[in-house]
Design a protein around this nucleic acid. Structure first.
Lengths: 188, 188
DNA sequence: AGGGACATGTAATTAGTTACATGATTGT
DNA sequence: ACAATCATGTAACTAATTACATGTCCCT
């Protein structure tokens, strides 16, 4: 999904400045499944404004720099609907954690232990942060996203906590496994 | 993780051609957490070869185009280890599915039903494909990746199947929820 | 005095994707 | 006859990120 549509999505939830839109990708709900930086948000907002998909109001603030508050127009709302009407393209997932874990046998065991502990901490923090969210007032779609996301984080945490120790123990014992051959190379 | 390191990772599992490396990202284990296209794999392999991290052997084949088979050198092996020794950067996840689901209230209900059904099918197919993999012969790290991945897919599938119908029913009834205000905008 | 939050914006760079170019073989 | 699989590679393009530029206020 391009940054323009992402901005329309954030703005659908209420008017916001570029800075606030960035926060939606950093700390808000979108942080779990989309991302965008200032360098792409500001130009996108400029284009969106010139095309009439958003309205921009300059706001003077006390003891803070000026703010440009953007608001979705009816045309912008239609553009958002059109964008979500097309079948979604497949998820893009890039995880260095999984890549490193995949080659765990090449690392010193304390390094693997640290890797898993940091991942466990990440899951715990994320779950705690998401738990603070009041679900009763948000629309259905958002509730399902929240529930599905929570499930993923919670089951990942449970799995790692359950298997961590035995995994680390198995790494200590030089593997009795069949060494690599071409027969088990590209397993799914 | 850059494509060069990704190639070293695939090659660590056994020698392969550029075409075969691509398949590891399409159908193989890496497909779940990394991606790379021909346009980045072939130049990466060229650089890796000129830097002595891989060896290249030209293979003539009957009734098939020639093949260039790449093999990890000791230097390449060291480079892979160095790469996985640095603390992994955070996962990058971009999901149009979640984005669309987030705004489910803007879509016709049959469209939402289709979205969920296709997601359920995707999870089922993925789980089936992963189940075919023989775990007994693969190293520990790969086994943990497989287990963690399976857990994520399975719990996502379970969650969607459990909540799908009630979710769709709730969408049919015009929401009794508090309409949007600034107070529930950027919930985590 | 130094860092972090607030606030906007541009320019340089990068790292990739998509499309193109070529061509045999096998299956439908 | 057409699509898919096998096989390698380049060029054009795009869409983003990172770094830079500027400035105030607040907290420690």
């Amino acid at each position: 999904m391009d940054v323009r549509t992402l901005c329309l999505g954030v703005l659908y939830q209420g008017e916001a400045s570029g800075y606030e839109i960035k926060k939606a990708f950093e700390e808000g709900a979108f942080s779990h499944f989309q991302d965008a930086s200032f360098g792409s948000i500001y130009p996108a907002l400029g284009r969106l404004s010139s095309e009439g998909l958003v309205d921009c109001t300059q706001m003077a603030q006390e003891k803070r720099p000026d703010k440009k508050v953007y608001k979705l127009t009816d045309k912008g709302n239609d553009a958002l609907i059109t964008s979500i009407l097309v079948p979604p393209s497949p998820d893009k997932y890039a995880s260095d954690f999984f890549f490193v874990l995949y080659f765990a046998e090449l690392l010193p065991i304390p390094q693997v232990a640290l890797l898993l502990d940091q991942r466990i901490t990440f899951y715990k923090n994320t779950i705690e942060r998401m738990s603070e969210c009041d679900l009763s007032t948000i629309p259905e779609g958002r509730q399902l996203c929240h529930g599905l996301g929570m499930t993923v984080y919670q089951s990942s945490l449970d799995y790692l906590e359950k298997h961590k120790d035995s995994f680390l123990n198995k790494l200590k014992i030089p593997s009795q496994n069949t060494p690599f051959t071409n027969s088990n190379r590209h397993a799914s």
